[in-house]
Nucleic acid binder design. Sequence first.
DNA 1: CTGCGTTTTTAAATCGATTTAATTCATAAT
DNA 2: ATTATGAATTAAATCGATTTAAAAACGCAG
Lengths: 342, 342
Amino acid sequence: MKKENITLKDIAKVAGVSTATASLALAGDPRVNFKTKKLVEEVAQRLQYVPNEIGRSLRAKKAETVALIFPNTPHNAFTHPYFVQLLEGISEVLVQNSFQLLLSTTPSEADEAAAYDKILRNRRADGIILWPASIKDSNIPKIIESGFPVVYLGKWHHDDIVTIQRDDFGGAYEATEQLIRNGRTRIVHLTGPLDYQVSIDRVEGYKQALQDNKILFDPALLVEADFSREMADAAVQKLHEESVRYDAIFAANDRMAIGAMRGLRALGLSVPQDVAVIGCDNIETGELIEPALTSIHQPMREIGRLAAERIVAMLTGQDITDKQTMVSSSLVVRESCGTLKN
Amino acid sequence: MKKENITLKDIAKVAGVSTATASLALAGDPRVNFKTKKLVEEVAQRLQYVPNEIGRSLRAKKAETVALIFPNTPHNAFTHPYFVQLLEGISEVLVQNSFQLLLSTTPSEADEAAAYDKILRNRRADGIILWPASIKDSNIPKIIESGFPVVYLGKWHHDDIVTIQRDDFGGAYEATEQLIRNGRTRIVHLTGPLDYQVSIDRVEGYKQALQDNKILFDPALLVEADFSREMADAAVQKLHEESVRYDAIFAANDRMAIGAMRGLRALGLSVPQDVAVIGCDNIETGELIEPALTSIHQPMREIGRLAAERIVAMLTGQDITDKQTMVSSSLVVRESCGTLKN
DNA sequence: CTGCGTTTTTAAATCGATTTAATTCATAAT
DNA sequence: ATTATGAATTAAATCGATTTAAAAACGCAG
């Protein structure tokens, strides 16, 4: 039932020319006679010829494919609320440029290194879009510094690496300041794991905002969690048991913000009256819960688009003038942060 | 900076054998002498040889790759809440079996046909996992009946096609019956676009449940929407303007259920007292809103896993005994449907 | 030392396209 | 009629691996 595929050879034979001519004709090379070109095109059309990309790739030494590497760690899964948006942005641009998208994860942390190495060398992809993992993960620097075309979606310490970064520092600063502006002074920062750059940057932004507003940083208010709702809930419980006093929470993602809000409710505290809350990511759920969650919006789709544009540019030999791109986030103010409506 | 890749030729030269021997040695062919084998392996190890998959694919006529085709229609985007879970299930199994995952979307509806055709013929993927689109979409039957290895994630009318299906009929039946059991008799079914099989099946399930409970089907209670929150909200508004009386809503997805709940609230109606609501998909948000949403849980991760297992089996020449697989959904009862706590 | 059967090794073909360098062909100039 | 010139075509190499069929090397008996 499965019909054999039509190859260039078939086209050449039917058109009565050599494969060389057929190839050149289809490529629109000016050397081939107009009539011959038309003939070959007609035959190709009629036989529904589709070039075998594998053959083409082998010869051209490129696969017209970009791999999205998303390190598979407990904190970094596809379930990340905005992973899908990133994917959409990337996909959109790649499709426009006739690149394919290979999705790469690793079976387990153990063979992570080998798996990445393979991607880099087996030539299935010409370039890589790389999502950050823990700063302790030694595979990340290995990939970035391999010389393979990479767009890194985070901060990197060499400015010859092409990166797309969010302004995590600025976002955290803005969120913290918003809480301060609303009269809060004892602001808990519920951070993600501190071996993630994003967490570190947000802590910095938080601290800077405190300092600029002459509020002393209290280490008791810096609580490390794991991005999960459950742990945020538990953290609020723990703060209560330790009788820590606070009037606001800035959580490093919306899941934790939501978890914290549930914890607060369980303690009989109301949001935003007793405790104001701000999250990060601006996931859809935040808009639908009560009170609606104030959050830092991350333009993930835009980041995906930019990353794809950059890698395509690199692979098509264009010059990248500004290798580092910073996209700014914005605060979406809703009820949970206690801002008065004007 | 970018070092040239090590090829089999390099290994052969360093080991002082022919490429044939090198290849055979690495493949563990018993014809090659044990000492030679060890030598070649040592050299490959030392030079960090990784076979070029493109070359291998060309010769083997297979790419060790599966494409996930997700038709890009307004109702069918990556943003589909459980797309990510599907992806996780697929990815997990493919990685285990050393298959790569190619993500395919189409630039626009216009060149959809050409794009699919290309995937089928350019040999970048050996098999396809296909997500349903509108029943009017002529590309779907084209792909399914091409003879190319396909696992279709829906119902198909020939039983020689490998499918993984959800029990949409059963799910709708169960949801409707739950509402009836809770004393509701005028149940609105907020359906998705009726050119989708899933919508048709759910309408059937809904009708059957009504009939089995001796409730007459009222066409005025069947409202077609587009899966969006906004349109569900508007639909509730419209029902009100038309003075349609009802005491329950069964929505074809959670987004619409949530939109409907917002619409009801705007009209001053309370859920579940005035109107009981059940959705489909069991998205995370449903658990977090108030009242918490009763919903039909879809085991998307499981579906992804099964689909990947099937396609891998097909591509590795295994026999598929049961070509059609039905996974059952389950009702997750929360507050919105008005079930009394026991 | 020859001949025969085994083990090992390797030359060469293959997969499907692209591209270079060489060749053929037609036309115009001498 | 011959040659130079340019246009059009094609043979052959190439990309990197696998695999078949043939050759080489080896061991051992006669």
